[in-house]
């Protein structure tokens, strides 16, 4: 479910569950976490993209709906939070390329990236309160990325925005004209970053993490707030309605 290859000190990671629009299952997140954990320390950049028609549709809600205990939801929330934190803590730049859509958990992955590109028409956002899930898990990372006002708006409003709008609010840094070119553009940026003297790039990333720490230090609280709701009546009812059973 995860493809990972390393060439010239650039790791290319791809979400590979295209028939499910790369929706996150607990197994897939385990695979992603372990792929990131196993990356060598001397890398110069990582790219994270998705195979198939879309970057990532978020959690596999069919799996969540089938588990009224909330355990699947809790596993996904914890897995996602761990991945975003681990990506952020890497001492080399993370380039994330969105094509098609980055919805809910898929959009949350942006919190672990330093450079985000997206195709002009990609859709991004957090419609998760519709199904009774709190995106609090993403809040610390959104606050460490875009302005507090925009972060508040994005996390609370269920509307999906297109990448052009996301670019205006700073959630996306570079626009790509077509979805087919997102991966090659991500690779190109990774090569560009990898060609710069390493010490300065690493020091800069680590320093920016330190400057942003007052926000990201709340990661555990964000996760806790999302976990606290998993499996409650509201969420179970809404998930069941969504899947018509």
């Amino acid at each position: 479910m995860i493809e990972c290859s390393i060439e010239n000190k650039i790791a290319s990671i791809a979400l590979n569950r295209p028939d499910k629009r790369n929706a996150m299952s607990p197994e897939m997140l385990d695979e992603l976490q372990s792929a990131i954990d196993q990356l060598p320390d001397d890398l110069r950049a990582i790219t994270l993209t998705g195979n198939g028609k879309t970057f990532c549709a978020g959690f596999d809600l069919k799996r969540c709906a089938a588990d009224p205990t909330g355990e699947t939801m809790r596993s996904l929330l914890s897995g996602l939070s761990g991945i975003v934190s681990t990506l952020r803590s890497k001492p080399f730049p993370v380039i994330l390329g969105v094509h098609g859509a980055a919805v809910a958990g898929g959009c949350a992955l942006l919190g672990g990236a330093d450079i985000v590109l997206a195709d002009r028409n990609a859709k991004l956002g957090y419609p998760v309160v519709k199904i009774g899930v709190s995106p609090a898990v993403s809040a610390p990372f959104m606050l460490a990325s875009i302005t507090p006002g925009a972060a508040r708006n994005r996390l609370i409003d269920t509307e999906l925005i297109n990448a052009t709008r996301a670019h205006k609010i700073g959630l996306v840094h570079q626009l790509v004209d077509s979805p087919e070119h997102v991966r090659s553009k991500a690779q190109q940026i990774a090569e560009q970053l990898a060609s710069k003297p390493t010490t300065g790039v690493r020091a800069t990333k680590v320093w920016l993490n330190e400057i942003g720490a007052p926000m990201t230090n709340h990661a555990a609280e964000g996760l806790h707030a999302s976990l606290a709701l998993a499996g409650n009546d509201e969420e179970c009812t809404r998930l069941a309605e969504l899947w018509g059973n």
Binding site: D114, I115, V116, A144, I146, G170, H173, T204, L208
Partner: peptide
């Protein structure tokens, strides 16, 4: 803002 600054400086 932190994200745009991160992009510009990296």
């Amino acid at each position: 803002g932190p994200g745009v600054a991160r992009n510009a400086m990296l």
